[in-house]
Design a binder for these strands. Structure first.
Length: 689
DNA sequence: ATTAGGG
DNA sequence: CCCTAAT
């Protein structure tokens, strides 16, 4: 049996409905509304529901005994789970439909092996709240928070999402980032909060990485959901009031949670009857949710944040910023993370904004490039009622708002014995996905369904102008494996402590990259791109280069064949703990030297020579953070080369011949000087010998 | 951290 | 531009 799937990784995942209602746009973008099955429910939704239920339970009958509570909880969970049709839903050919994205998280979840319920759980099985804890993995510390809240404790740590995250999925790794203080206010520590920067990553939500239920032996059939999912399918078991906000929002939520402030000025027209939401349970749970999923932008004060479940109007009023669902920090290489840390990726509205705030300590080599050419937009949209269509032009630069509808993860080809168990299949998918993700991803950019290959083009040159059709742009996730897969004899101990028989599985990791629509593939798997950056040159303004949109080079080749591997050999799974350098950092964007820069460079070199690039840098490019002395040296090299070739062979913005002449002249002069120096030292060394 | 050179 | 050996 060959199970061929194209995994479409959508940025859908969990979404917390209880967003300030007034802040929600009245508009509905139907295209973004995920059609989900009624039986889909994300783990966190369940958790929240359960927790809310528990809280209600506790409040309504504070005298009820623990055992009774526990029993109810277990019962509830079981019933909730029973509402799932089946634990695994593998939809065929969903690659055709853009609205049927299979989340990685979902996949991961699918990959979850129910046999794991047997595995040792760090949680004491006799834990009072085992009913709850068994639903949500111990990896998700929200569960603990919820539990503690239920228990009346309110000094809870948020975070500590460990476990499988090191496989490339996201999760909080730092438990110190936020917590609930003794007054139950959400505290987000670190400059993450101060700066409004949310470490983000492309990854699955942790909640779907949990281990299955111990409760009744059934795996939790929890599938990722987004806000449009009807959460409490278990309505019979949950008092509606236990989660009124969600229940309401679920029905009307639209994807465009509107990063901007339009919601304040344009109250939702989808006025629904809002049930009272004053229950402590709700507040608590929503606090959890908020802490997990929503992030207030930098301009929001902390007090406001702590009010997330309280005075929504205040939030709204204060909303210089906006709510964002908080992405968990992906376990990505440090370097990469450094880049991502200054960016915000909105999950709900799917556009990317980058913050140009670059008071970081890192060298300007990587980060500053990015930081300086990215501007953040979220809070400033004035005409945000048309989300994503236009961005107001700020200063003298035009910015493009980008929206990520979905990521496509590389195609996976999985071969399995027909006699393999479903559990094995799940595990195989799991491993395939994790190996892909763990191997590192790079981003591909699609414009009009065609892959944008040239990383050096500016967005404008590519056609991504500020008024481009948003939907024309797509992103893909591509494996960064490029011959680095470290194949390892399958050893179940590496990540899946399970003793079930191992099936024959195989994942051609050099496999295809499936793109949007017409399935383009990249024959050049190394062309790392971080194509979502907007160039801004303040230090030095490279003059506008050719604005040709070279669509012919954007490739229209057919998809790359999936490399078939020998089926007979022992099953292997690539496990690369060691991340290759290619995944560590993105290539800097190309920033051609302007004539002005060349002029400055020539002048400096004339003065200082060709061996003192640091001085050249200091002298002529001290304030051009994106020009390192290596860059200058390289540029000089190319300048010399350019000066030597015929003008017809030169490319790019033409450099005045006068400058090139000076280049040659200076080069000759300093070469001569260098030679003289060598001659002077030569006898000395001879004497020494 | 810089320099020098190959890729 | 990147990568790195060599300073």
């Amino acid at each position: 049996m060959v199970l061929e799937k194209r995994l479409d990784y959508g940025f859908i995942g969990y979404q917390v409905p209880p967003m300030p209602r007034a802040a929600r746009s009245a508009r509905k973008r139907g295209t973004f509304r995920k059609r989900t099955e009624d039986n889909q429910m994300c783990a966190f939704d369940l958790l929240a529901t359960v927790a809310g239920n528990m809280l209600l339970e506790k409040e309504s009958s504070p005298t009820s005994s623990n055992t009774s509570n526990e029993k109810n909880r277990c019962e509830f969970v079981q019933k909730a789970l029973e509402n799932e049709d089946k634990p695994v839903k593998i939809e065929p050919s969903f690659q055709e439909s853009s609205d049927k994205r299979v989340l990685v998280s979902e996949l991961v979840h699918q990959a979850g092996d129910q046999n794991f319920s047997n595995r040792e759980s760090p949680l004491p099985q006799n834990d009072v709240h085992s009913g709850l804890a068994s639903v949500v993995t111990t990896d998700c510390s929200e569960i603990f928070v919820a539990e503690k809240l239920v228990n009346g404790e309110n000094n809870n740590e948020m975070g500590s999402f460990t476990s499988n995250v090191d496989l490339g999925f996201s999760g909080y790794r730092d438990s110190s980032n936020c917590k609930l203080d003794c007054e139950n206010k959400l505290i987000i520590k670190d400059d993450l909060h101060k700066t409004g920067k949310v470490p983000i990553g492309i990854g699955a939500d942790m909640c779907s990485l949990e281990d299955p239920v111990v409760c009744d032996g059934r795996p939790p059939a929890l599938v990722s959901s987004d806000s449009s999912v009807k959460v409490p399918l278990c309505g019979d078991h949950i008092p509606c009031s236990s989660f009124p906000a969600i229940r309401d929002d679920v029905k009307i939520v639209s994807r465009d949670d509107d990063e901007n402030s339009s919601g304040c000025t344009h109250p939702s027209t989808i006025a629904k009857s809002i049930r009272p939401v004053s229950h402590i349970a709700d507040r608590r749970i929503r606090k959890i949710l908020a802490s997990k999923y929503w992030k207030v932008s930098s301009k929001l004060k902390e007090e406001t944040l702590s009010n997330v479940d309280g005075d929504l109007k205040l939030i709204c009023r204060n909303r210089k910023g906006y709510y964002k669902r908080q992405r968990s920090q992906m376990n990505i290489p440090f370097k990469k993370r450094k880049i991502f840390q200054r960016s915000l990726v909105s999950n709900s509205d799917r556009w990317i904004s980058y913050e140009g705030n670059s008071h970081s300590t890192e060298k300007g080599i990587n980060g500053d490039d990015l930081g300086s050419c990215l501007k953040m937009h979220g809070a400033s949209g004035t005409s945000s009622s048309v989300v994503g269509q236009h961005t107001s032009v700020q200063s003298r630069d035009s910015y493009v708002k980008l929206r990520i509808k979905s990521f496509r993860v590389p195609e996976l080809l999985i071969e399995m014995s027909e006699t393999a168990t479903v559990a094995s299949l799940k595990r195989a998918v799991m491993e395939a996905v994790t190996s892909i993700l763990g191997g590192g991803l790079r981003v591909g950019v699609l414009l009009q369904g065609k892959k944008v290959r040239d990383d050096n083009k500016t967005l404008q040159q590519t056609g991504i102008a500020h008024d481009y059709p948003l939907d024309a742009l797509g992103f893909t996730l591509e494996p960064n494996l490029h011959k680095n897969p470290t194949f390892m004899p399958r050893d179940s101990s590496c990540m899946l402590p399970c003793d079930t028989p191992q099936p024959l599985t195989r994942y051609p990791l050099d496999s295809t990259v499936v793109h949007q629509g017409d399935s383009h593939a990249s024959p050049e798997p190394h062309a790392a791109s971080l194509g979502t950056f907007i160039e801004s040159d303040h230090d030095s303004a490279p003059s506008p280069t050719d604005t040709s949109v070279d669509k012919s080079t954007t490739d229209s080749k057919a998809l790359v064949a999936v490399s078939a591997m020998d089926v007979d050999t022992l099953a292997v799974v690539p496990v690369h703990r060691k991340l290759k350098r290619s995944e560590m950092a993105q290539r800097r964007i190309r920033r051609p030297f302007s004539v002005t820069e060349v002029e400055a460079l020539v002048q400096a070199v004339e003065k200082l020579g060709t061996g003192r690039w640091r001085d050249v840098k200091l002298r002529a490019f001290d304030n051009a953070k994106h020009r390192t002395y290596v860059d200058l040296k390289d540029k000089w090299k190319t300048l010399v080369h350019t000066a030597r070739i015929s003008p017809q062979q030169r490319r790019g913005e033409p450099v005045p011949q006068e400058l090139l002449d000076r280049v040659l002249c200076a080069h000759a002069y300093w070469s001569q000087q260098q030679a003289k120096q060598q001659l002077k030292q030569q006898p000395e060394t001879c004497l020494l010998l």
